[in-house]
Amino acid sequence: MQRYFLEAHAELGEHYTIAQKDDVHHIKNVMRQQVGDQCIINFMNGTMVVELTDIGNEVTVRAIDQLDIQTEMPISVTIASGLLKNDKYEWMIQKATELGAHSFIPFVSERTIVKVDEKKFQKKLERFEKIVKEAAEQSYRQIVPYVQFANSGKSLVKELEVFDHVLIAYEETAKTGETKSFTEAIKHIKHGDKVCVIFGPEGGLSETEIELFGGTTVGLGPRILRAETAPLYVLSAFSFHFELQ
């Protein structure tokens, strides 16, 4: 059953309106749903089965059943990653959304190759948001991860205060053969904690940035991972530790 998101608190029996053009188009022209058909909506206070009661320029639905499901990771993981060239960043956030990331902070690192025009970057952010929304629907997420841009490492530091843990994936740690720091860091994380994991772009993070961020540096095993692969490794490890054991 197709899933959508609405920023509303729902009650059984009440009616709600889907107004977002992409969602209306998908319901009418892709899924070809009719009045009386059902779909699933993730509301702000839970996930519900709804019945379509009117289909026009907007779609009206009625909440008919509350679903007792939990598809979100028990910790909140934010991926702060230096912007990547070509479409690698888009690929990463799509897959990271499927793996349970709570939010993303793309930032301009000292070694970022991509040229960023902040005036034009808003369109890029809108594309990122669309990618994570579609990935969240496909993977049965109950929230849509948000994307917040930081135009420098110093700007990123200002965002780190809200987190319980800040981990820095540092390839130099892995190159020395260190393999226990990530495991040790996970042991200190509890259900409900907010975790930010920082990754560099192609070429990694500079020593200056490592000192600036002030978190715990961790290696991700004996192999050196690509910038777009490392966040997926971390999310998979978190999922195994917190969801599958």
Rank of each mutant, 00 (worst) to 15 (best):
Q122W: 05
Q122P: 01
K124T: 07
E126R: 13
E126N: 11
F128D: 09
K130N: 15
V132W: 09
E134T: 08
A135M: 04
A135R: 07
A136K: 11
Q138C: 10
Y140R: 15
Q142Y: 00
I143L: 15
I143D: 09
V144Q: 15
Y146D: 10
V147Q: 07
Q148H: 14
F149G: 14
F149C: 15
A150S: 14
N151Y: 12
N151S: 11
L156P: 11
V157C: 13
E159Q: 09
L160K: 08
E161A: 15
E161W: 00
H165E: 03
V166R: 09
V166P: 08
T173D: 07
A174Q: 09
K175M: 08
K175A: 14
G177F: 01
T179Q: 14
K180W: 01
S181Q: 00
F182N: 00
T183A: 06
H188M: 06
H188L: 13
I189H: 08
G192E: 01
C196V: 11
V197S: 12
I198K: 06
F199K: 11
G200Y: 06
G200T: 14
P201M: 00
P201K: 01
E202I: 09
E202H: 04
G203I: 06
G203N: 05
G204Q: 06
L205V: 01
L205N: 00
E207Y: 00
E207Q: 09
T208R: 14
I210P: 02
I210D: 00
